[in-house]
Amino acid sequence: MWRDAVLIAGRDLRIEARSRVALWQVLPFAVLTLLLFAFALGPRPGLLAQSAPGLFWLAVLFSSVLAAQRSMAIEGSGATRDSVRLLGLDPAGVFLGKVLALLAEMVALEAVLLGGVVLLFHVTVTSWGVLIGACLLAAVGLCTANVLYGSLAGEARMRATLLPVLVLPVVAPVLIAGSKAFSASVAPGSGSGARWLGILVVFAVVYSAMGVALYGPLEES
């Protein structure tokens, strides 16, 4: 299973290295959302810093859907399906591989967005541990949910509009927990982030487990 996962992750990342879709399309979109949020709220630094946790996670959520669209577009082509089937790859491995590749992209994206939030919105982070932990855990949850729902949403024609409707309500807990953990890491007085990290752990574990169990029957179609 893990060998297949590494194979698929390597393939997806190689495709990304050649096509640069995430670099030239998803990343600019993510940075753009930060600018647009600032335009919507006005240039007052206090307000922006206050809203930064939520805005950061909204930007992450929206970009994750775009990145997942791209990732599933690779999987959706007929030739890819046939080759995966011919190679007899373990579906759980394929799922984990896609998640791993997407995870690498998401972590890079979060790093850039975090830098953007700190620089543009004047946020001073006090406990980096909680924040980085939240980013990593949330990335796992977002990637697993996105790959699962991307596969569920079916053909490419419908996926573009269907995936956001399906996946965004499901990842609402990630948005809530992520924002709260971010707030906790900005202002130490506002309570511990442990409870929110707990939600992120549960979400990541639940969706990883379901993906390993159900990706096979999903892709049979």
Binding site: L152, P173, I176
Partner: peptide, 16 residues
């Protein structure tokens, strides 16, 4: 499968 995903999501949504 979508219905089961949603059902699993409900407790997480509720607690958060």
């Amino acid at each position: 499968i979508a219905a089961i995903f949603a059902a699993v999501d409900v407790p997480i949504v509720h607690f958060s």
